[in-house]
Design a protein around this nucleic acid. Structure first.
Length: 799
DNA sequence: CGAGGGGAGGTTTTT
DNA sequence: CCTCCCCTCG
């Protein structure tokens, strides 16, 4: 157990007294040390403990700090024991960070926060306790159920589609998987599926979905979507079970609420019903996962869903310069239906957001590479030396990464690509896991199918069919069927010998796994060696074989944290992260989605071209909604930058091998010019000012060597529009606070002093619609804006 | 069983 | 253009 720093003096040990009556007055009089340094809004977010709270936390406003301090506060006040707080995140990374920070605040590890985790991991914990209640009359889950990943899911669906004698080309399993995920995201089990939806997939949707769920049950398996859906249906069908969980969780905290889907929303609502102490943190402007079922509506509707909800807005930004914030705010202002926020900062104005166009994607990559080298050498004004670790390139689509990888490889610029294939998605890890699964659960047919012929044992389709026939005839799992097939001599030659050995080896390993005295780590190594799996990769001459062997070693190492294989398997499916090894200074390349929650001093945002960003397909499929989500993505991108953001676009880009010309992104037109610095094109093509660009419409796009076509600078409609607008507005630029407030109470801002007839003077800490949250001497109140008057503002909004 | 050709499809991504 | 998957042929 790790002892953290900063043990809080005078801290009461957390005991069974769940409700130490401590009024907010008392806290205000003697603030706990961990509350120091919080701004007024953050304090409100930390101290408004009872009832529903919506914490609207803009980018870089100290959301995680508020959230973790709130948990620490709950524990310190004795409002709840660690086991009575439910805190959910979307990613393991976020969960881990919260744990670490709470530990730092409290000066000890939070082994005692068993219910801080991802939606999925918490659902697993709950489901394992009630597995028997999940299922239909005959079949139900058992507590050791396995969690299938996307790959298993597809393979299973493929089998079902084949079983119906459907053409896999016309009925692709991937598409069905997508449909089923969608239904599960909306918490629609086969029995509740509307007729219209059942007819999806050419009429087979409902039927295949039901068959799939049935098959999962018989395999004692669930997929990711089931974790939430089963949990919700469990709660709905068993009020007593629900009640026990409702009572346990006195306080609920939810991170990234704008990303919740319907199932997660239902889950939260059910659990919050008893104590109603639910605090949801989110930012409607950063909702970028609509395409996988997230409903921005959840956060927009919060106040209706949870009547009496208090809304706290965190608007002071501690990350970016005013220039960056203003550019981002100006852009996102084009979206409709926002809750509205006014981000502000005390930071120095800083560098304007830079904008530059390039001839093509290769020139773009080349230029960014040169800029990075210049930054690194300290040859760029305003920033001094910048470490490679401080620089990120954020792209819309992963195929954009290649241009940068190619370029950086040639010039020897160290980089890392973040968000490649996950560790546990790699074939070798999945194979090894399948071995472990089959050893622990001999009835795991999916695992059997995966590895029976890996490495090659001469057991092809035909052998597998034979085994499957035997399995059906005897009604036994495949491994058992294999044993029978061997005994009955249904196979011949090499296959027979190999299968006999395979079955025998599994028997041995299984026995060893049951032996509590034996080391599960040694067993794992033995399984991989004796099965020939390690040898298979050792003999493989492909360049990635050594890497795969390393991964296997890492997998075995991960076993150390568990007592046995069983325990490992129960948790690992959800928690295995690939190690982001710090290997010296490197530029980070990642997608905009992957960058959410991160921050970098310098951020490059390439590929701002219509069709790529905003993405054509997003707009085609979801219209304005899709466009707005793309715009939020742009907002997320810009707000990752602490000191400098550089946006760029290319006139030509290779797409599916074809050179295609493109127009600058419409988002570029939406950037507020006063915060943008337009860089003159580099002198790469003919040199100096006025060189370099040709865009679509000039019909020269397809020939990148056509220098003549490059004569006219920025010859695009979008660019001209921008120039025209810049010319128009000479004098009366709206200066000072960039107030992008959609509220009726727009003449108030957070931080304003107001006075109220009854409560006296106070300071606004939150604004929602026409309702203000005001901190008075007597405490926090939520008041209609009409009932207060401005009492003079001493808070300068610094830009 | 495994290598190689043909054909389709090719945002974003966590669990 | 490039990758992945399926199918066929040796």
């Amino acid at each position: 157990m790790r002892r953290g720093r900063g043990y809080v003096a005078g801290m009461e040990p957390i005991d069974d007294s769940d409700n130490l009556p401590l009024s907010q007055r008392a806290i205000a009089a003697r603030p706990a040390p961990y509350l120091e340094g919080l701004n007024a809004a953050q304090r409100a977010a930390v101290e408004t403990l009872e009832g529903p709270v919506l914490m609207l936390a803009g980018a870089g406003t100290g959301k995680t700090r508020a959230l973790t301090t709130r948990i620490a506060h709950l524990l310190m006040l004795g409002k709840a024991r660690p086991g009575q707080i439910l805190a959910v995140t979307f990613t393991n990374k976020a969960a881990r960070e919260m744990k670490d920070r709470i530990a730092a605040l409290l000066g000890e590890t939070v082994e005692g926060m068993p219910w801080l985790g991802t939606f999925h991991s918490i659902c697993v914990k709950i489901l394992r306790r009630h597995a028997e209640l999940i299922g239909n009359g005959e079949l139900h889950l058992k507590p050791a159920f396995t969690i299938l990943d996307t790959d298993d899911q597809i393979r299973l669906l493929k089998q079902l589609i084949q079983a119906e004698n459907l053409d896999e080309k016309r009925w692709p399993a991937r598409q069905l998987a997508h449909l089923i995920d969608g239904w599960k995201n909306r918490c629609l089990p086969p029995s509740n599926l509307p007729k219209r939806e059942k007819a999806a997939f050419d009429g087979w949707g409902g039927r295949l979905y039901a068959a799939y769920q049935e098959r999962l049950l018989s395999l004692n398996a669930v997929d990711f979507g089931d974790l939430l859906m089963h949990c919700v249906t469990l709660f709905q069908a068993h009020p007593d079970v629900l009640k026990s969980w409702q009572e346990r969780f006195r306080y609920i905290l939810v991170d990234e609420y704008q990303d919740t889907n319907v199932a997660q929303y239902m889950w939260l609502r059910l659990l919050a019903q008893a104590h109603r102490n639910i605090c949801c943190v989110g930012d409607d402007d950063q909702s970028i996962y609509g395409w996988r079922g997230a409903e921005v509506g959840n956060i927009l509707r919060f106040e209706q869903d949870f009547p009496g909800a208090q809304v706290v807005r965190l608007e002071q930004n501690y990350r970016s310069t005013p220039q960056i914030l203003s550019a981002a705010s100006g852009l996102i202002a084009a979206n409709s239906g926002r809750l509205g926020k006014t981000l502000w900062t005390e930071a120095e104005a800083g560098e304007k957001v830079r904008l530059i166009g390039h001839w093509d994607s290769e020139a773009e990559a080349r230029w960014i590479g040169e800029e990075i080298e210049a930054f690194q050498g300290g040859h760029r004004a305003g920033l001094g030396k910048v470490s490679l670790d401080d620089i990120a390139i954020l792209v819309r689509a992963s195929h954009q990464m290649r241009a940068f990888e190619d370029r950086f490889m040639t010039i020897g610029l160290p980089y890392r690509v973040i968000g490649g294939p996950r560790f546990y998605e790699r074939a070798e890890i999945r194979d090894a896991m399948a071995y472990f699964r089959l050893v622990v659960s001999p009835a795991d047919d999916l695992a059997f199918e995966r590895i029976v012929n890996t490495p090659k044992r001469g057991l092809g389709d035909k052998a597998l069919q034979t085994i499957q026939t035997v399995a059906r005839r005897h009604g036994v799992p495949l491994l058992e069927a294999a044993r029978i097939a061997v005994e009955e001599g249904q196979l011949t030659g090499k296959g027979l010998v190999n299968l006999r050995d395979f079955v025998a080896a599994l028997g041995r390993w299984h026995a060893d796994a049951l032996d509590a005295g034996a080391s599960h780590i040694e067993l794992a190594e033995r399984i991989l060696d004796e099965s020939g799996y390690t040898a298979m990769w050792q003999n493989d001459k492909s360049p990635d074989a050594p890497g795969r062997l390393d991964n296997l070693k890492e997998l075995v190492k991960a076993l150390e944290e568990f007592d046995n294989l069983q325990g490992f398997l129960e948790h690992v499916a959800l928690v295995m992260d690939r190690d982001e090894g710090e290997a010296g200074e490197e530029v980070s390349i990642m997608t905009l989605h992957g960058a959410k929650g991160l921050e970098f001093p310098v951020v490059f945002l390439p590929g701002w071209e219509d069709g790529l960003f905003p993405n054509q397909r997003a707009m085609d499929e979801n219209g304005t909604k899709g466009l707005e989500e793309e715009r939020r993505l742009a907002y997320v991108g810009i707000t990752r930058a602490e000191r400098l953001a550089v946006i760029s676009f290319a006139g030509n880009r290779r797409l599916y091998g074809q050179w295609q010309s493109s127009m600058p992104s419409r988002f570029i037109d939406e950037l507020p010019e006063e915060h943008i610095e337009i860089l003159t094109p580099p002198g790469l093509y003919g040199g100096g000012y006025g060189a370099a660009m040709a865009f679509a419409g000039a019909n020269a796009g397809t020939d990148m060597h056509d220098r003549a076509a490059q004569a006219d600078v920025y010859n695009s409609p979008g660019w001209k529009r921008m120039q025209a607008r810049a010319a128009e507005r000479k004098a009366p630029v709206r200066r000072a606070p960039v107030t992008i407030d959609t509220e009726a109470a727009a003449h108030f801002s957070v931080g304003d002093k107001v006075s109220h007839a009854k409560f006296g003077e106070g300071q606004i800490i939150g604004i929602a619609e026409d309702t203000l949250t005001v901190q008075f001497a007597a405490g926090f109140k939520t008041i209609k804006a009409a009932y207060v008057t401005p009492a003079g503002s001493d808070q300068d909004v610094p830009f």
